[in-house]
């Protein structure tokens, strides 16, 4: 069946099987920043934003996402033009094997949209749907707090220059 949905601000039409997951549909369409992990809504590697809300793409039927807005890690940045959150993850060594990171960065993005200066506890809470087998989370939490600070500075600087 053919479905139309917005992926990373671009209207796309995809041919999907009725039982196909959004995870498979996205990876099939070239969005390989979406990672396949547990396929049971436990590990968080497949997280995308669905209308801005962190969601496990392995638990979503692609056909039921028609008309929705999907954001994958590709929308946020790339190695040559990293998003502030991505840079913070790299600088704070919140990346080892990197498999969990695309999902974590998207969840972080959604968190900081809602709450520009989260406490460490709020950051840890927001990450509870993500498993990382490498870092023990400490460095990622540090990276997220750093990203929040930097985004706040950017906003303050932006206000300054627009005056």
């Amino acid at each position: 069946m053919r479905i139309a949905l917005t992926i990373n601000s671009e209207l796309r039409e995809l041919e999907v099987a009725p039982g196909e997951t959004l995870l498979d549909a996205l990876r099939g369409a070239g969005y390989t920043g979406v990672k396949r992990g547990c396929e049971a809504g436990t590990c968080g590697s497949c997280v995308v934003l669905l209308d801005g809300t962190p969601s496990f793409s392995c638990l979503l039927f692609a056909a039921a996402c028609e008309g929705r807005k999907v954001t994958t890690i590709e929308a946020l940045g790339a190695p040559n033009r990293p998003h502030v959150i991505m840079s913070a993850f790299a600088e704070e060594a919140g990346v080892q094997c990197g498999y969990c990171v695309p999902g974590m960065v998207l969840t972080t993005h959604a968190l900081l949209e809602q709450n520009a200066s989260p406490s460490e506890e709020e950051v840890r809470g927001a990450l509870d749907g993500h498993l990382c087998r490498c870092t023990g989370y400490v460095k990622q939490v540090r990276a997220i707090l750093k990203a929040a600070e930097r985004l706040a500075e950017e906003r303050a600087a932006g206000k300054e220059s627009s005056r």
């Binding site: 436990t42 669905l50 638990l59 979503l60 509870d128 749907g129």
Partner: peptide, 9 residues
């Protein structure tokens, strides 16, 4: 329920 992301589902 489970994790916060699961609560979105």
């Amino acid at each position: 329920i489970g994790s916060r992301i699961l609560q979105n589902h």
